[in-house]
């Protein structure tokens, strides 16, 4: 089936794009400019969100898990896998749920996902440290996720709008 091949190719491209974005973000961390531990733009989330809107929930989740596995392989860090998986999967599940609620736009879905991502990562930190002290960062990170979530939502909206004219993913 042509559509299946097309979807598979698109998934692979998006996974590569997400990987590239997260590697780039690690090279130029926002924390260098804003001294807040753990603050990230979450550029790779643009890809996840875009995939959710263009391809659906299952492909988006597949792309996310593939990105997390390959990303931690690139970083050569096993504990990074727990962080990215817990943050990423929780964000994905929240975004899938929020998107089903038709009243929300891509902005609401994106902000919810960004907040869930931070909660998941703090959860991973609590597990690895065996200490709840990191929970103190949650209020700050949640506040920042309002900004980063709006930003990724805005970019995803632009992308989805552009794709509506291209009809690449569903012809």
């Amino acid at each position: 089936m042509q559509l299946k091949t097309r979807q598979l190719a698109l998934c692979a491209i998006l996974t590569a794009l997400a990987l590239g974005l997260s590697v780039m973000e690690n090279l130029f961390p926002v924390t260098a400019a804003i001294p807040l531990p753990g603050v990230k733009l979450g550029l790779a989330n643009i890809v996840t969100l875009f995939a959710l809107y263009e391809l659906g929930a299952a492909p988006a989740l597949t792309i996310l898990v593939a990105r997390c596995l390959l990303g931690s392989l690139f970083a050569g860090n096993a504990s990074a896998l727990l962080f990215s998986l817990m943050g990423g999967v929780l964000a994905m599940l929240v975004m899938i749920a929020l998107k089903r609620w038709q009243k929300l736009s891509v902005f609401g879905v994106s902000i919810g996902g960004a907040a869930a991502h931070n909660i998941g990562q703090i959860g991973a930190a609590v597990i690895t440290l065996g200490d709840t002290a990191v929970l103190g960062y949650l209020p700050i990170l949640l506040g920042v996720s309002l900004i980063t979530g709006t930003l990724t939502g805005f970019i995803t909206a632009l992308l989805v709008r552009a794709m509506q004219n291209l009809h690449l993913s569903h012809s």
């Binding site: 009243k103 929300l104 891509v106 879905v109």
Partner: peptide, 12 residues
């Protein structure tokens, strides 16, 4: 898909 912010987004 809704691409512009809606009033419901503020709920999130």
């Amino acid at each position: 898909p809704k691409l512009r912010p809606t009033a419901w987004d503020s709920l999130i």
